[in-house]
Design a binder for these strands. Structure first.
Length: 874
DNA sequence: ATAGGGTTAG
């Protein structure tokens, strides 16, 4: 998270490009050096009386007067009388003033932080023709830096060559303080090139900077330097080394240094606790804390704060409370930082009440207190309270920072409230708040999570320099909001403009999955291998899921088996994969293996296994899983679980059982539940029940055209043309439009999309004649086309034409025409496959000796040698 | 005259 500091970054750019015209180049320094050596001669004339007798006596007189003036100014400085000191300085002649006098007055202004007066002295020095160098130059720099004008201080610093380590340290330290670590490192390197040896301060500072910019290798190098120069026993330096190693992941090196350190002070111990905590070893950190107590090392505020963070991370509420008590005893309970950490600890340990109590008792709040409390409310799902607190903070005069802003946006995202999110965004605009990169990212994330990719993109398009997070949020947002083509498009753009990381992979792979874009998915798989991302668990899981959804179950299985430490997601993805492809028994075996591996299923893995049972018609097994879930007190079956059971009962022909199951549900059934039964009515041709069920469905979701079509089809299949027609007219009257069925096939990374009756395709003629030929063959081999699916009350010839025009048939035929013999044909359809197409696919797989994998909106159908893996369960 | 450890989000 680099803060942008324009004035310093321009420096850095100049230096790194070796720009000769920059005022800070060594050659420029040399010019200043030579000019000033000339004036050094002049200035020494001021203080050394000449030897000539006549001139000499007057010079002596001048000298005495000068001394008086200089002494007077110094006296004024001593007592802090700025006005008189300045007055005297201004009215005195240049020749009367000594360098020391300037120094004393600059020192005073440095201590008083009087920048304006300091600047005046600077201009007097310049107009008096005094060269800026040596002690005076150093003092001038010190004045500017002390007064907070680092930029002006740097200008003076660059004007002369100096070898004062203190001054270099000062500059480095100031840059480090404002986060300009690179600038600090630049100065360190320059110092080394000039042959100026650093001291312990130098190394402490530069180690911090290297750690901050993530240069672990440099820390090692500096470590060597430190030992060579004999700072290996300096406490401050070793402590800096320890924390630098920790910050760059060198946990072992840090521990080794600590073990070898003889004089450990409280900072050494604190560094160990914080280092362990930041590397995810909170328990180890707490052990260092306990060792401190045993050895009676004094504990300070930082110790308690670090230990509290450790407790928060591992949820150790008991120790957290003990630390609270210890803090009160040690009089830290007035410290804001202590209270902030404390309230965060309570919240993270699941104790909102105590967290709020700490917050309400804090005498003095900072933006951190508010942010932590906002996050505490979000943790408990109290999003409105969190948002309210954000606005309340403003009325208390606390200005929100990046953390506060991202937290409140997260609250909006979690509450799934686009209006509240927009409200916060408007609040930023009204208050002219700077929208930094992290804030833009949080805004995009909020809009994406609330489903408005349009607004997310608007924010995205206004970011001048995007980082990987920005791209990932957009790509993942498109994937999650069912805009997979947009996700893939943006991923391609990202590859041109930025560096995709492991998270990018996990964001873009689901898009391949939802498009069944196997070739693109394979490409991205290659990308993860080349970049070493595939060892990341979330990437591996995403890959398995992608192969499952792209219909390549064997690849999914292969990758799944290769995951060394599978988590709940890995298992759930594979169980769902087996289910979707109709391998119910494999899904069950995998579920049992997961339990044997000590991983307990959650609600989602139960949904997956129940669907797997339903897709394979495993009625008894499904009941068993459903009952075992109900027997666990921590689980309450949700709507989706009931939907699976209804689906399972209905598919297996237990329609009336399904009906009574719905009636006895403890929660109110929604349209999906009734819809599952309606679907079963279609499979088992129960028109009477279908009408009864449809009433429920239409009442719950009157706008969803899919259900009207479903009932219309049930009528048509029963050849009840009048009813079908009425229903279709009803749809028309309501202005509802059926979402058109479409199918697509990916060939060489490009998608060919077909809609029913499409004749615009360049190969339409070939496709048509191939389908006609297949139909003839089918007929001659005794297949009768399933006229029912034409759903038009016309004579059979017309029906046959319409049947041939179904999008999945077109896509399959296109695949046969364009893919080399023997290659598997993979087709995806946005709706459920039609019965006649299903029959024809079986036939196609036999006569063309091709494997056809058809994914519909519900599951996969593998057609091979004239049969389908679904065995009729669809 | 300059230092090392310390709170909040995603």
């Amino acid at each position: 998270m680099a803060k942008s500091i324009p004035e310093f970054s321009t420096h850095a750019t100049c230096y790194s490009h070796g720009n000769k015209s920059s005022y800070a180049t060594p050659s420029n320094c040399f010019i200043h050096f030579t000019t000033s050596s000339r004036t050094t001669l002049l200035s020494s004339n001021l203080n050394v009386p000449r030897s000539s007798s006549i001139v000499g006596s007057s010079a002596l007189l001048t000298h005495t007067i000068n001394n008086n003036i200089n002494a007077k100014i110094c006296k004024f400085c001593e007592v802090g009388n700025i006005r008189n000191a300045m007055e005297l300085l201004r009215t005195s002649k240049s020749s009367e003033l000594e360098l020391n006098t300037y120094c004393s007055i600059l020192q005073l202004f440095a201590e008083n932080k009087s920048l304006q007066e300091g600047k005046m002295v600077h201009s007097i020095i310049s107009s008096n023709g005094i060269p800026i160098e040596g002690a005076l130059g150093a003092k001038l720099v010190f004045m500017y830096v002390s007064c907070g004008d680092l930029r002006e201080g740097r200008k003076v610093f660059d004007q002369f060559l100096n070898d004062k380590v203190f001054l270099w340290n000062l500059m480095m330290f100031e840059y480090a303080k404002i986060g300009a670590h690179h600038e600090s490192i630049y100065l360190f390197n320059k110092m080394q090139n000039l042959g100026i040896a650093g001291n312990s301060y130098t190394f402490s500072c530069v180690l911090k900077c290297f750690a901050a910019v993530g240069k672990a290798g440099q820390c090692k190098r500096i470590h060597g330097n430190v030992l060579k120069l004999g700072f290996g026993s300096y406490n401050t330096v070793v402590n800096s080394l320890i924390s630098a190693y920790f910050k760059s992941g060198g946990v072992e090196s840090a521990h080794k240094l600590f073990d070898e350190l003889i004089d450990r002070d409280v900072v050494s111990w604190n560094s160990m606790i914080s280092g362990c905590v930041m590397n995810g070893f909170s328990q180890d950190g707490l052990e260092f804390f306990v060792r401190m107590l045993v050895l009676r090392v004094g504990v300070d505020l930082a110790t308690l704060v670090n230990a509290l963070v450790a407790c928060a991370n591992i949820g150790n509420l008991a120790l957290g409370r003990a630390l609270h008590a210890q803090g009160v005893k040690g009089c830290f309970s007035r410290e804001v930082m202590f209270n902030n950490t404390l309230l965060d600890m309570y919240s993270k340990c699941g104790n909102l009440k105590d967290a709020i109590q700490v917050f309400e008792k804090i005498g003095q709040t900072t933006v951190v207190s508010w942010t932590s409390t906002i996050a505490a409310y979000v943790r408990e799902g109290l999003y409105d309270d969190a948002i309210r607190l954000f606005y309340e903070m403003e009325t208390k005069g606390v200005r929100p920072d990046t953390y506060a802003v991202t937290s409140v946006l997260h609250a909006c995202a979690c509450s799934n409230s686009l209006d509240k999110g927009r409200g916060v965004h408007n609040y930023f605009r009204k208050n002219n708040m700077a929208i930094s990169l992290p804030v833009s990212n949080a805004l995009m994330d909020m809009y994406a999570k609330c489903g408005s990719m349009k607004e997310a993109h608007l924010v995205f398009s206004q970011i001048p320099v995007k980082d990987a997070v920005s791209w990932n949020i957009m790509i993942g947002g498109y994937s999650k909001n069912s805009l997979p083509s947009e996700a893939l498009k943006l991923f391609a753009e990202m590859q041109e403009e930025s560096r995709p990381d492991d998270i990018t992979m996990a964001c873009v792979l689901p898009a391949c999955g939802s498009l069944a874009a196997l070739e693109r998915g394979r490409e991205i798989h290659g990308h993860t291998l080349r970049n070493g991302f595939s060892s990341e668990l979330h990437v591996a899981n995403a890959l398995v899921d992608m192969y499952v959804k792209c219909g390549s179950l064997s690849h999914a299985q292969l990758l799944f088996d290769m995951i060394p430490k599978k988590d709940l997601i890995s298992w759930t993805v594979m169980i769902a994969g087996y289910g979707m492809h109709g391998f119910g028994n494999e899904a069950i075996a995998t579920f049992e293996k997961m339990r044997a591996a000590g991983i307990e299923p959650d609600e989602i893995s139960f949904t997956s296994i129940l669907y797997a049972c339903s897709h394979s018609g495993l009625l008894n097994e499904g009941w068993e899983f459903f009952n075992s879930m109900k027997s666990q007190p921590s689980f309450k079956p949700k709507l989706e679980h009931y939907a699976c059971m209804v689906d399972l009962l209905a598919r297996t022909g237990n329609l009336s059982k399904a009906y009574s199951f719905i009636e006895t549900m403890p929660i109110k059934p929604d349209a999906t539940i009734w819809g599952a039964l309606l679907c079963g009515c279609r499979i088992h041709h129960d028109v009477e029940l279908a009408e009864k069920v449809a009433e429920h469905v239409f009442e719950l979701e009157p706008e969803n055209t899919g259900y009207y079509v479903l009932l219309a089809n049930i009528y048509a299949e029963a050849e009840k043309w009048e009813e079908a027609k009425k229903l279709r007219e009803k749809i028309g009257r309501r202005g509802l439009k059926k979402s058109p069925g479409s199918s697509w096939i990916e060939i060489q990374g490009k998608f060919a999309v077909f809609v029913a009756g499409d004749t615009s395709h360049p190969q339409a003629k070939d496709i048509d004649s191939l389908l006609k030929e297949l139909r003839m063959k089918m007929k001659s081999e005794g297949y009768s086309p399933k006229m029912r699916y034409a759903l038009i009350n016309a004579d059979d010839t017309v029906k046959e034409v319409v049947l041939c025009g179904h999008s999945e048939k077109l896509a399959m035929a296109f695949g046969i025409l364009n893919l080399p013999p023997g290659r598997t044909i993979r087709v995806t359809k946005n709706l459920r496959v039609c019965g006649d197409c299903h029959e024809m696919a079986k036939f196609m797989s036999k006569t063309t000796k091709r494997e056809i994998i058809l994914r519909d909106s519900n599951r996969f159908h593998h057609f091979k040698d004239g049969s389908c893996s679904c065995r009729g369960f669809w």
